[in-house]
Design a protein around this nucleic acid. Structure first.
Length: 270
DNA sequence: AAAGACACCTGGGAGC
DNA sequence: TGCTCCCAGGTGTCTT
């Protein structure tokens, strides 16, 4: 479900309700997410203050003075801030309740998300191998070009590999390659530095624009305020198989790459 | 070392 | 109406 813009939208939405709040208790209704929610989570968070909230890739971190909860929304996860008395609905798996009477509620129908605890989150095995942030200064054409050296895999899969760059999921990988005029099956290692310049800036401008619009709502993504994202209106290729290419009007093609739907214009993307 | 397939899980829509 | 099948915004892990 969420890619980087949706996670960032979620984070910004919940931040005012979470920062500097003291945790009263954690209610776990369904601990079986991608990995079991650790038993110690309530013990670690109870009576502690969330003094910082951050994002690394698609992970959201709720920091306390001595450790952090690590949260991932998977394909279908969402976070809402609700009054603690609001009845939990199906798939509302976890509440992090605060002393002020509200709580942060995690809903995740498919349960591909995760909620973990680490005293040293930056060294956590899920986080430490992650690649660069696409909106950071380290992400540029020469980084991509260097990482791609000698690689034969399709550039789209290369872009979606979180060990290279985080946060670029299926929607934005498709859109960025369209914007850059690069065919998604091109071997990552045979793309020139020049073309990586176009691609890197396309990724950054698309992610930035999507964040500004509150993310992309396909069917069920809602920001923590319950509003959808509006970026879907600007998707040029994603989910538009057979529709006319906005640039040249020829039909958008759909193929599978790494079992993921891949949309592109065979005329505009070479 | 790198690439590819598979796994986890539920719900929605298409087609019959 | 109801069944079956396919698809979905992610990503760690196992196999080649």
């Amino acid at each position: 479900m969420p890619e980087l813009p949706e996670v960032e939208t979620t984070l910004r939405g919940i931040e005012p309700y979470v920062l500097q709040q003291r945790v009263k208790k954690v209610i776990v209704r369904q601990p079986q997410l991608r990995w079991p929610i650790p038993d110690e989570l309530n013990k670690q968070l109870q009576n502690r203050i969330i003094n910082k909230i951050s994002r690394r890739g698609k992970y959201i971190l709720l920091h306390t003075q001595r450790g952090a909860a690590i949260l991932h929304l998977g394909m279908s996860g969402s976070l809402r801030v609700v009054d603690a008395l609001t009845p939990a609905q199906k798939h509302d798996h976890v509440d992090i309740c605060f002393t002020q009477g509200h709580c942060l509620r995690l809903r995740d129908p498919r349960r591909f998300g995760a909620l973990l605890w680490s005293e040293t989150p930056e060294q956590h095995p899920l986080l430490s191998p992650l690649g660069v942030e696409p909106l950071s200064a380290q992400f540029d054409a020469s980084y991509l070009h260097a990482q791609a050296h000698g690689r034969k895999r399709a550039v789209k899969l290369f872009l979606m590999d979180s060990h290279i760059v985080v946060g670029v999921g299926n929607i934005y990988a498709n859109e960025a390659l369209f914007a850059a005029g690069i065919h998604p099956k091109t071997a990552a290692g045979k793309i020139s530095l020049k073309r990586y310049e176009t691609l890197a800036s396309a990724i950054q401008s698309i992610l930035t624009a999507a964040i500004q619009q509150g993310g992309t709502t396909l069917k069920d993504f809602l920001g923590s305020d319950g509003k959808p994202g509006y970026f879907k209106q600007q998707l040029n290729v994603y989910d538009r198989a057979d529709a006319p290419c906005p640039r040249c009007t020829s039909a958008i093609k759909l193929v599978k790459l790494g079992q993921r739907s891949t949309y592109f214009c065979s005329k505009c993307q070479r």
